[in-house]
């Protein structure tokens, strides 16, 4: 990996190690052709790394919070969609009409900002709503 980075002009770098609230390890790296960091700048770069990571977590949480507005039924339909079931099959599984299934999926698709069913399932996976 380091060799590949060098080919792209990244000869040296500075990593900021972090521990998250949940106790996970995280790191943010700064890289360039060469690194000239006086001690005071190291502290500053560490702060930049920490705040950038914090902001990234906040944005991720916000996205999750938006998705959490899915209703239980919408989640059911989404999960069955991800299993490859058709609208009709889902309607039989859940004991509701096919048009109700379609409207749940449509609502979910809009909430997940996606253009079609495949995109919706992909967004749901990315957001961790389904595995």
């Amino acid at each position: 990996m380091m060799g590949e980075a060098r080919e792209h002009g990244l000869g040296a770098g500075f990593a900021v190690p972090m521990v998250t609230l949940e106790g996970d390890l995280a790191t943010m790296s700064f890289a360039g052709e060469q690194v000239d960091l006086p001690p005071a700048a190291r502290g500053l770069i560490s702060l930049v790394g920490i705040f950038a990571m914090g902001r990234a977590f906040q944005l991720q949480d916000r996205r999750k919070a938006e998705h959490q507005t899915l209703t239980a039924r919408e989640l059911d339909c989404l999960r069955w969609c991800a299993e490859g079931k058709t609208d009709w099959e889902i309607s039989v599984i859940l004991g509701i009409s096919e048009s109700t299934v379609r409207s749940h999926i449509n609502a979910t698709r809009i909430k997940l900002n996606s253009g079609n069913k495949t995109h919706m399932v992909a967004e749901a996976l990315r957001a961790g709503l389904i595995r």
């Binding site: 972090m18 998250t20 609230l21 995280a26 990571m53 914090g54 902001r55 977590f57 906040q58």
Partner: peptide, 9 residues
Amino acid sequence: ATWLLRAVQ
């Protein structure tokens, strides 16, 4: 410094 990230989170 560890607490900075936790506080932002």
